[in-house]
């Protein structure tokens, strides 16, 4: 401390696949801190009593979901340290199911995130269930109960939060509101569908494929 650093934010893009889907968001933050430490990237540490690496994850990913589009911001304290060096050093210590594919200068702050794309792959989807699901997603409103962080249950309408959907064969593409202000988890959509239409739950896997800004463009 006492020195003045030219801090530089960098935005790191990575995938979280395979076995990594069993790693919860909290565990991921600890994992990333260790990985960054091993990578020897000149990162900025917070200045509190309990100093730790500054990391900002764009939108936490639910346990059990895979993703090809995760975003994390860190701060670099060395002016001469380039984004490509950063990417190289991260990949030199990356695990099997975490791959870093880009490091860029951030364009928008994370509060500008508006939507996220998900692909839900069903183990099997009968034609009857598919048409029920399609009709369900085109309803005028889908009222359901959502339990908030503090355990408060409130009634919400899912329809305004579903920007678009595409049901093809055994996959459902969903674009849902995402971000710190409003967020919709695809499991809530499916749980509501199963319970409100009295459909026997079927297994599906979820992959997040894009994080979008409020205009619906790729968040950068």
């Amino acid at each position: 401390m006492g020195r003045v650093f030219a801090l530089r934010n960098v935005r790191i893009y990575f995938s979280k696949l395979g076995r990594m889907k069993f790693v919860s968001h909290l565990d991921l933050t600890r994992f990333m801190a260790r990985l960054i430490k091993k990578s020897k990237i000149p990162v900025w540490y917070t200045e509190g009593f309990n100093r730790h690496i500054y990391m900002n994850f764009a939108v936490p990913l639910s346990l059990g979901f895979e993703s090809t589009c995760e975003i994390m911001d860190i701060r670099i304290v060395d002016e001469n340290f380039t984004n490509s060096q950063c990417l190289e050093q991260l990949n030199s210590v990356a695990a099997e199911d975490i791959k870093f594919f880009a490091v860029n200068d951030p364009v928008l702050p994370t509060k500008e995130i508006g939507y996220a794309d998900f692909i839900l792959s069903f183990e099997e989807l009968k034609a009857e269930t598919a048409s029920k699901l399609s009709a369900f997603l085109q309803s005028d409103s889908i009222l359901c109960e959502k339990t908030g962080k503090k355990g408060k249950v409130k009634q919400i309408d899912l329809i305004p939060k579903i920007k678009s959907f595409l049901l093809e064969d055994k996959t459902l593409n969903l674009t849902l509101v995402a971000g710190s202000e409003d967020n919709l988890n695809p499991s809530l959509v499916m749980d509501t569908f199963f319970s409100q239409t009295e459909t026997e739950p079927i297994f599906y896997s979820v992959t997040r494929t894009a994080i979008l800004d409020k205009k619906g463009n790729k968040f950068k």
Binding site: S24, F31, E96, D97
Partner: peptide, 10 residues
């Protein structure tokens, strides 16, 4: 805690 059984740790 599926992480107990998933393996693949660093």
């Amino acid at each position: 805690k599926p992480g107990r059984y998933s393996g693949g740790e660093s």
